[in-house]
Design a protein around this nucleic acid. Structure first.
Lengths: 339, 339
DNA sequence: GTGAAAGCGCTAACAG
DNA sequence: CTGTTAGCGCTTTCAC
């Protein structure tokens, strides 16, 4: 039914010329007689010719493919990152090979190997592993994305500015009369949580406060945040106001739902501050006040950096994009008379 | 710094044998002396050899790459579809080339050409175009996904069962004492909206009711749903209860927020029924009652079908997966005394 | 069982 | 300006 796809040879035959001339005409490289070029272009169009990129890649050593490995595309934050990456990749004429690691290092390694076999020109990864060598071993140009980057100073990276993010949140809370918040962090194995926590402690100390903070850990999901909030409520000593700062919006939203389930009210009884800036934070009542990271820009920036690295400008850059606070109503103003 | 990647030739040299023997050992095809095989495997491991898939693809004609073209990864519904597709692709040893069409047919065509150049073995697409030939022209095994599939009876497809989805919603509304709902549909050019609307009319007619329904259109976004709801409120004649059935959850959620902005209460003043079943529907107060589509399964199923089509089982199957209703509180029970 | 040889479709030198 | 040549790294006959 469907004939074999036309090759450059078929185009050459139809245009009554040679393969190299066709290649030149199509790539617009080197001098070519205008008449010949038009004939080639016409032939190519007539045959519906599309060059076989794999064949070209084999000679040139560039596949024009890049990999993106993120933990979970179903998390709106990562979806937004992916969208940014996708857009920028298309602009750069690159195609995106996409993988979800699901927070599993075995999956991650598996995906990385798939990328190597596909001979991608490079990859963007939010890694789950903790040894940089494990990453270097793949021998691919890499750009790290997100907080996991902080562990590997030897690789270019783009992420949000965690200290700045934390400062923004903490200053906002302080401005509304809150003391040190209870933290809901991600999985303790991952560096992101430790970084977040130590930034909080540092900032507290800088203000002359105790470095002690109550922390709960969860798995970055709604359910995890929900469970963590229940534990926090369980442990509280009296009917005093509780302030929670969650390391991502999904957990913050889960916490807010736990409140609803317990008949408590946000922000009257409990204040919740999120982190990420996902759209879903506008759906809750009250809307989720959050420190928004520039997710889309993270994606575009990472691809741009990777593209440069591939072009041979191996700048070991570490880009930190600033977050901004979005006030929506989930944090009480305690100055008007606490509780 | 970084040496060239080892080739099968390097492995052969180290194992003191020939390329063909290495290929046989690695692919486990054909008879091989156990000793030789072990030597080859050891050599491959020692060199960190990963086969160049492109080179293999050129000979075999199979790239083990498949494409996924969806409108917007930032829409949680599509993110979920992508996740399902990704999982299944990995299981099948396929890598996913991912593209966002952003509802633009020029983008879509651009992406399709990129897929052809990459010589993907096939693609899954939620198409924006309206002529099947435009799709056939690419000469790729294709599986359509989502409602856009209904327009092209000549291609295999997997989507939700729209009449069943609509019936589920309408029966639920009827059961709670609601008349015909006002519809918030997607863009009028797209078939999904027309299909949804005609399913509603058919179902209404089957119950002996008028086929007339009030419809608003939007662009599948939160903002679009918000604006549509404002127009609906604007047009209402008195303080009677309004029932809205939105064609996706994002618009439903937008509508709910419009209510909040107008000082109206859901479900007391206005009932809202969504469609999709995205997680974010649990964040609102009340939670969004919705007809949930099996997004994840849609993705896995599509990849499974495509994989079969690629293997040469060109079953022109059209799979319709059933939706289910998730009741969460955004629809009033009017039987207890309408308004 | 194993190796030599012939391409897959393209690009990149190099002659003409 | 244009055509010829030689591979890129692998798979796949086909002899040995």
């Amino acid at each position: 039914m469907d004939d074999r796809r036309p090759t450059i040879h078929d185009v050459a035959a139809l245009a009554a010329t040679s393969k190299s001339t066709v290649a030149r005409a199509l790539s617009d490289k080197g001098a070519i007689a205008a008449g010949v070029r038009d004939r080639v272009l016409a032939a190519a169009r007539q045959l519906g010719y599309e060059p076989n990129q794999m064949a070209g890649s084999m000679r040139s050593g560039r596949s024009r493919l890049i990999g993106l490995v993120i933990p979970d595309i179903a998390n709106p934050f990562w979806a937004e990152v992916a969208r940014g990456a996708q857009e920028r990749a298309v602009e750069a004429g690159l195609s995106l090979l996409f993988f979800s690691s699901d927070w599993r290092s075995d999956q991650e390694a598996h995906h990385m190997r798939a990328l190597v076999r596909a001979r991608v020109d490079g990859a963007i990864i939010n890694t789950v592993v903790d040894r940089a060598e494990a990453l270097h071993a793949f021998g691919l140009p890499l750009v790290l994305i997100g907080s996991s980057a902080e562990e590997f100073k030897s690789l270019p990276a783009v992420g949000s500015d965690i200290p700045q993010t934390v400062r923004l949140g903490l200053d906002y809370l302080a401005g509304r009369g809150h003391g040190a918040p209870t933290l809901i962090l991600g999985p303790p194995q991952r560096i992101a949580g430790r970084l977040f926590a130590s930034s909080v402690r540092d900032h507290l100390a800088a203000r002359g406060l105790s470095r002690d903070v109550v922390t709960e850990t969860a798995d970055y999901t709604v359910e995890g945040g929900h469970a963590a909030m229940l534990r926090i409520l369980d442990a509280r000593h009296g009917p005093c106001h509780i302030t929670v700062f969650a390391a991502n919006d999904l957990m913050a939203l889960g916490a807010m739902m736990a409140l609803r389930d317990c008949g408590l009210e946000c922000p009257r009884d409990v204040s919740i501050l999120g982190c990420d800036g996902i759209v879903a934070g506008t759906f809750s009542s009250p809307g989720l006040t959050t420190v928004a990271k520039p997710a889309r820009a993270l994606g575009t920036r990472a691809v741009a950096m990777l593209a440069e690295a591939i072009e041979g400008h191996p700048a070991l850059t570490r880009v930190h994009l600033p977050s901004r606070l979005i006030e929506r109503g989930s944090v009480a103003d305690l100055r008007l008379g606490p509780r």
